[in-house]
């Protein structure tokens, strides 16, 4: 497993942050990892919502169990962590 540096935007935040993620991490783990740098530091928690990952400019969220190494990303790929409006899932 390697570390891949990603550029991350978090919903309602105002800054792009560099977050190193493990290539074996799932998208749900990536979202939680990124949230660490925003939620509770400058954004209030929204525990009832599910966080999802998409590419900047992409319209669709990536599958929650997709692993980073399967996503075909290069260093400094830019992702957005957004809340899904649906009810919370079990592993949120």
């Amino acid at each position: 497993m390697q570390t891949l540096p990603l550029v991350c935007s978090f919903e309602d935040g105002c800054i792009l942050t560099l977050v190193p993620v493990d290539t074996g991490a799932t998208m749900d783990e990536v979202a939680r990892n990124v949230a660490e740098h925003f939620v509770g530091r400058m954004l209030p928690p929204q525990p009832s919502k599910v966080m999802r990952v998409r590419l900047q400019g992409g319209s669709a969220f990536l599958p929650r169990q997709l692993r980073v190494e399967e996503a075909g990303w290069q260093p400094l790929t830019t992702i957005e962590i957004a809340y899904e409006n649906a009810a919370p899932a079990a592993n949120a």
Binding site: S9, D12, C14, L16, E80
Partner: peptide, 13 residues
Amino acid sequence: IGGIPGQGHHVKG
């Protein structure tokens, strides 16, 4: 790299 908060993903790379 800054944008406006509270507007989803106003900040872009």
